[in-house]
């Protein structure tokens, strides 16, 4: 019968229309921005720089090695290395970025900078409400605007951040153990040297 197919289709439309009052899966609209979907942990928008402790400038993990700058496919990162060094998370003196700019109007959120960073210093943010009325200035993020605390990182990517923190804790423990061993060895050497020094006039064993 001609028209049967159309009627069948209309029945389907009606089922969806009335079904949307009952079934959640047929009514999928979310009233953004009043309502928002739950944040997905793996989501990524643009990169940010992680810092430890209260001071963003002092605690920044970045050591200005410029790997991300070289590997970035659209070349949206600009880094200028500092002249002096300052201690990093483990306590080793390192360079730091005097300038670190990311042009997020060029960035394509590919996450390659995060993958290549050997210091876990650059991570992906999840913030997506970034519209601004200044096309150039507000989309060029400098070091201060890029810096976000480790607590923030833990809040947005808990699983990943926990692994990173565990890794850092291990590194720090290793460094401490090494330092302790070094001081102990030094103390032991001194202890050995001291009696030796006393004995020296008698036996001259140190030769």
């Amino acid at each position: 019968m001609v028209g049967e197919g159309i009627l069948k289709g209309l029945v389907e439309t009606a089922r969806n229309f009335f079904g949307s009052y009952v079934g959640k899966d047929r009514l999928t609209t979310v009233q953004y921005p009043e309502e928002r979907l739950p944040q997905i942990e793996a989501a990524r928008s643009f990169p940010f720089l992680v810092y430890d402790g209260p001071d963003w400038d002092k605690g920044m993990r970045c050591v200005a090695c410029q790997i991300c700058e070289k590997e970035c496919p659209p070349k949206c990162i600009l880094i200028k290395k500092s002249a002096d060094k300052k201690p990093d998370a483990v306590g080793k003196p390192q360079f730091y970025p005097a300038v670190f700019n990311i042009d997020i109007s060029v960035c394509m959120s590919c996450q390659i900078c995060v993958e290549v960073c050997p210091f876990d210093a650059i991570k992906m943010d999840v913030d997506y409400d970034l519209s601004t009325d200044d096309r150039f200035g507000d989309l060029l993020l400098d070091k201060e605007r890029l810096a976000k605390s480790n607590e923030y990182y833990n809040a947005i990517h808990p699983t990943e951040a926990a692994a990173v923190d565990a890794h850092f804790a291990e590194e720090r423990a290793k460094a401490e153990a090494k330092a302790k061993a070094a001081t102990e060895a030094k103390a032991a050497a001194e202890a050995k040297v001291a009696p030796a020094a006393q004995e020296q006039p008698v036996g001259g064993e140190t030769q």
Binding site: E69, K70, K75, C76, L78, N101, D103, V106, F136, G137, L140, D142
Partner: peptide, 16 residues
């Protein structure tokens, strides 16, 4: 000279 030109563009954008 990709990296160089892009670096220039970045600093231009910043120094408005």
């Amino acid at each position: 000279q990709q990296s160089e030109t892009d670096g220039n563009r970045l600093s231009e954008g910043g120094g408005r």
